[in-house]
Each structure stands twice: as C-alpha cells, then as structure tokens.
Simulated assay, not measured.
Amino acid sequence: MSIASHNESVSPIGVGDYAAGPAEYFALLKPRVMSLVIWTALAGLLVAPTHVHPVIAVASILAIAVGAGAAGALNMWWDADIDALMARTRLRPIPAGLIDPREALFFGLTLSFLAVLTLAAAANLLAAALLAFTIFFYVAIYTMWLKRSTPQNIVIGGAAGALPPVVGYAVATGSVTLDSLILFAIIFVWTPPHFWALALVKSGDYARAGIPMMPNVKGADRTRLEILIYTLVLVPLGILPWRMGIGGDLYAAVAIAAGAGMAFMAMRVFRIREGSRASKAAMQLFAFSILYLFLLFSALVVEHGFGLIERFGL
C-alpha cells in the first residue's frame, strides 16, 4: 500500500466534516508518552558532567518534547486503520473522524522538521541528529515495519523510547558516553515487560487488529515467562547508575525499593495464570512499571537538579 493511499478510508465521516480543535491536535502528540520522554531527556541532560545554560536547556527539552509529539502524530496517522479496530484506541482523533489523516501527516512532518532544526540551533548537530534518528526509528522502523510483522516489535522498537536520555546527554556534552548508554539500556529492557503486561490483558484487541504481539503469537504463558526474565535483568540494571556514580544515595534507595516492587509484581504475573486475578496482576504490573521508571529518573533529576540550581543561583 502506498503512503498516499494509506488511511484514506479510515474516517467515518466525510472530508470537510472534521471537527478538530486544539485538544484533538494535542491528543495527536500522545501527551502521556511525551511527558515520560521529557522527564527521561531531562535526566540525561542533568547527569551530564557538562552543564548548559538554563535557557538552552529549556529550548532543547522543548524541542525534544515536540519531536516526541511529532513521532506520536505520525504513528497515529499510519496506525489509524488498526486503531479503529481496537477498543483502546478507536476514539483517537483520526479513527474518531475528528482529524483528516492528511492533516495529521502534515502536522507530524512539520513538527518533526521544526523540532530537529530547533535542537540543532539551540544545542548541537549530534543532539539534533539523534532526535531525527529517534523520530525516524519510531515511525519508519517500529510503526511501519516491526509493529505489524514480528512479536519482537516492542523489543526492537523499544530503542526509540530509550533514546531521549541519550539525546538529553548529547545536548550538554555533544557526545554519547557509557553513562548515557546505561540510561538507554534501562528503558530498553524496561519496555518489554511494561508493554507485554498490557498485551496480556488486551490480546483480543491486538488479535482483531492483526498485530502480532507476544501473547497472540507465543501464548500467554511464554509471555509471562519473558516478562519475568526481562524484569530480573532490569532490576540490577536499574541499580547500575548508582554503582557507576551517576546516581547517589537517593537513587540507590529508590532503585532498590522500586526494583523489588517490579520483581514482586512480575513474579505474581508469572504465577497467576487464569481468570480475573491474572488480568488484575498484569494491569498492576503495567501501572507500576510506569511508576518505576518515573521514580528512577525522578531521583536522578532531583539529585543532579539541585546542583544545577546551586550553579546558576536559581
């Protein structure tokens, strides 16, 4: 199917009847995902040994946020056909008939260009190139290719969601180092148990849309085992920033406590396999995994943010 013809017949209402306002365009940006991108990118920027001026930092984080939103809009444009088939996504602006798919495409491409250009001007070319690659990887590699072709879609595609702290670090240093790659690795390994927990509950949705998520292809029991394995790798990986000197005592306490919670919930998902209790355990893991990642990166932001406040007397 050509890009020109993709999603031409998604909307239930006719062209010219779209009722999009600021709220609908904002929804295209996937604001919840964007907020996590902002937070992890900020952590990457703050942990860097070289600090940037607050004005440059704010402009850079804003550009990264807009880039993340642009990627979300392009994802919704391409996936509007399958979004219309799933209860979880059918009320998104394009399948709901609120935004013309062509307008969403233009919106996403325009924001992508502006975000990359702004980051190049505010920070440096490496950070801008990494942001451009993140958008490309999420839209072209994950959304257009991996998502509909392999149950490893989340595993490989998770690289896009793991790149923001690397971009933030590059804003400050103009380089990619082991420190930023550790933050990348944490999000990369966190992604499969996070999404597969949801997929266990929403497997019917994914089946209707023809998306080969792990529970639909390998079965629920195999998915539970892989969730547990990834989580057991994630927990010590989450503590590594403390051992490497990126995080301090606050980070260590948060990583150990939150990691214990992740491991406990992943074990519950592995052991409880039938009925409503299994679905409840999976959704609890899904919800807690968001909190887990937020707490880890919040600890980094707090520890390094105080130093930045002192440095500039803010």
Rank of each mutant, 00 (worst) to 15 (best):
Y142Q: 07
G210Y: 07
Y230N: 06
I239K: 05
A20K: 13
M213S: 11
G14N: 12
M76V: 06
D205Y: 10
L183G: 02
R222T: 12
A170E: 07
L295Q: 08
L105C: 06
F113Y: 14
H304N: 11
L178V: 12
A73M: 12
A209H: 05
W78V: 07
V171M: 15
V176W: 11
A27L: 15
L181A: 08
S11V: 08
A127P: 00
L114T: 13
V302M: 08
P95W: 07
M262A: 14
I154T: 15
A132T: 11
P241Y: 03
A43C: 08
Y169A: 10
R311I: 00
I211N: 12
E24Q: 14
L308T: 07
A282Y: 04
P93G: 09
S2D: 15
W196Y: 02
A132K: 05
F270Y: 14
S180R: 11
N153L: 05
L183E: 05
R102N: 13
T177G: 13
G14V: 12
F312D: 09
P49D: 11
A123T: 02
L308M: 14
S289Y: 06
L109A: 14
W145I: 15
L29F: 10
W39H: 14
V15K: 14
A162E: 03
V58A: 15
P236G: 10
I64G: 03
I290R: 04
G248Y: 03
L293F: 09
F106P: 00
L85I: 12
R268N: 02
P49M: 02
Q152G: 06
A197I: 02
G21P: 11
D83P: 06
L250C: 07
M267R: 13
L163Q: 09
R208P: 08
A19Q: 14
M265T: 09
P54S: 10
F184H: 07
A299W: 09
A299C: 08
N124G: 05
K30M: 09
F286K: 08
L105T: 00
R243M: 15
S180P: 04
V55Y: 05
L314S: 12
D17I: 04
G67P: 01
F107W: 10
K280E: 14
Y251N: 07
R243I: 15
V201P: 00
V171C: 13
A41N: 05
L45E: 06
I227L: 01
L300Y: 07
V55Q: 11
L300A: 09
S149Q: 12
V15F: 13
T89I: 04
V217A: 12
G174I: 02
L105G: 04
A59I: 10
P95G: 09
A115F: 10
F107Q: 07
W190H: 06
M86T: 06
